[in-house]
Each structure stands twice: as C-alpha cells, then as structure tokens.
C-alpha cells in the first residue's frame, strides 16, 4: 500500500498537511504530534518584514466553526529563515512556506530569499487572506490580478508554487484557470470564507476587524464543491482544505479531486487531528483494497 502523493515533482510520504496559519511552524504542535508523520508542514504566512497583525479580539466561535482575523502577524522572512526553517529541517517531513505580501515586490522579496533554501520544497502564495486591507486578497479575487501576480512570482521562484485560492469569488474555476495559465504548479483551496458575527448584548462586532475568515467543519461542503469544480477546470494538482476534522472528510476531498489535504481549524479542537487523519486514510485504503492513494484522487463516481 502506497500513501505517497506527488505534486509538481515533489513527493510527499502521505497526503496530510497542515493548513497555513493554524500550525505555526510546527513548534507548538510538535509537542502533541510527531511531525515526521506528516506529509508536509505548511507554515504560517511570512512576509518580507514583521507584521503586527490586527487588534483583538481576533477570533470568535461560530456554529460548527470559527472566525478569525489575525491579520497575518509574523516575524518576517529573516527571523523565519534563521529560526523556523532550521527547526523544521530536523524532521523528515516536507516544508511548504506560505508567503504573504502587500505588493508584488513584497512577495518577490520573500520568494527570492526562500530560493536559497533547498530544504523548502514548495511555496504557497497567499493571495486570499481576507483579513488584511492591502495586497493579499486584492490579488486573489480578480482573475487578471491573479494571473499577473502568479506570472511575476513564477519568474522569481526557484521552488514550485502553489496558489492558494479564495472562496470569496463568484466562479472558482475562473480563478483556478487564471492561476494555471500563468504558470502555477499547483492550487490550494479553500482559504477562509468571509464572515461576520455580532455580539447582541454589547452591540459590538465579535471580531475587532468586523469581518473575519470562517473556517471549521461548517464550511466543508462549500470547500468540497470548490475543489471538485477546480479539479475539473485545471490539470495542475490541488491541495484541498476547509473544515477537515477526520479521515472521512479528507477522503471526500481526495475523491473530489485533491491530491493532498490540509488540516486547519480542527488542530485547535483536537491537536492530534493530523496524525489521526493519516491513520484513518490508511485504514480506509486497507478496507477498500486501495493500492495507491493516487488512485483515489478524483475517483468520485460520475
């Protein structure tokens, strides 16, 4: 039985990854799970300089999920490369670095610095964070803007790039196609869905940023649908995510067309989710005599 999956020439020992922003750089959850057992650690977004993030409250609970507006607080690429990369290098897992920026130049600066680090297998380009006012989402909600930034980053990137798509668009296939046409090596989706919560007793927004990105099991059907649509629109591989809580959820994404999956908000609910999903996929493959995990990708009966 083979759980390996290959995306843009990079082979992962299994298809289970961490969703950016929910797992730091692995240090915190390394106390709970053996990082060697993960297909990849996808890091928290990192920019060219430190970002302070948004005011608090930054998180709120909603039915079956949560809202967040962290605002991409991060230490900047230099600290990240001195501290986080060496930490992750100790483990036998792939490193995917999530890159954020406010301008094309910001992204390019980070991408170029990471180009000198062979331990980083892939770059995930965050053009879909709904919680920062400049950059980021502006590149991810219009097909032509997405095309342009993808093309520009591709010129500078030494590693294969994954464009992380926003679900906050009318037609996900248009975005997927634009990224592919501009040279993206893979796609990841979905980022969080923009939401809002109001505290009726205090008559205030639950999140200081007013809006936040919704994640958690409540968004899973939306995510599965978008992965399915994107998988039928493009040829490049897809990393699926959005509310995955267990192996059954992960397999749904794979059957819908994902080559790999990421665990996000559920890490907060159960810090052992990632390794439980690895084990659960293995059990499923045994139960249904699936020889290669890759046989499951897009294998929903149509």
């Amino acid at each position: 039985m083979n759980m390996q999956t290959t995306i843009a020439g990079v082979t992962f020992k299994n298809p289970v990854m961490t969703a950016s922003g929910t797992f730091g750089s692995g240090m915190e959850y390394g106390e709970f799970v053996d990082l060697n057992q993960l297909g990849a650690v996808v890091t928290k977004g990192v920019a060219n300089v430190p970002w302070p993030g948004n005011p608090t409250p930054r998180v709120a609970e909603v039915y079956g999920g949560m809202l967040n507006a962290i605002g991409l607080q991060n230490p900047g690429i230099d600290v990240f490369m001195d501290r986080d990369i060496p930490f992750l290098k100790q483990y036998d897992t792939k490193i995917i670095v999530n890159v954020c920026g406010k301008s094309v130049e910001d992204y390019v600066e980070v991408v170029e610095k990471l180009g000198d680090e062979p331990a980083v297998s892939m770059l995930e380009i965050n053009v879909s964070c709904p919680n920062v006012t400049e950059g980021a989402i502006a590149f991810g909600q219009k097909a032509d803007a997405l095309y342009n930034i993808t093309e520009e980053i591709k010129k500078h990137a030494k590693q294969p790039i994954i464009m992380k798509l926003s679900p906050n668009v009318t037609d996900i296939t248009e975005m997927a196609k634009a990224a592919e046409a501009a040279g993206a090596d893979a796609l990841s989706l979905i980022n969080t869905i923009t939401g809002m919560k109001i505290d009726i007793h205090r008559r205030k927004f639950a999140i200081a940023n007013k809006t936040g990105g919704m994640s958690g099991p409540a968004i899973k059907p939306v995510a599965v649908r978008m992965v399915y649509q994107a998988a039928h629109a493009v040829q490049i591989p897809i990393i699926g995510m959005g509310g995955i809580a267990n192996a059954e959820d992960a397999i749904e994404f794979i059957l819908a067309g994902a080559s790999a999956v990421s665990i996000g908000a559920m890490n907060f609910v159960n810090p052992y989710t990632t390794i439980e999903v690895v084990k659960g996929i293995e059990d499923y493959m045994k139960r249904y005599n699936v020889e290669n995990l890759t046989d499951l990708t897009g294998a929903v009966d149509v």
Binding site: G21, T22, F23, G24, E28, Y29, E31, F32, K44, P50, W51, P52, G53, T56, P57, R58, V59, A60, M66, N68, I70, Q73, N74, P75, G76, V79, A265, N267, F268, P271
Partner: peptide, 26 residues
C-alpha cells in the same frame, strides 16, 4: 483574551507589549 488553540499556534490571543515579543518580534 479570546483564544482558539491555547498553545501559541494561532496568534489569536495577543497583548501589546513594551518589548518585542520573542515569537513574532512585533
């Protein structure tokens, strides 16, 4: 503060500090 993970990963529950914090230096 409102928390999501409780273990330092999500950066949801922060407070402004005089000195640079050792995680994000912000």
């Amino acid at each position: 503060e409102h928390m999501a993970c409780g273990v330092g990963a999500c950066l949801g529950c922060v407070v402004k500090t005089k000195e640079k914090d050792h995680h994000s230096h912000v």
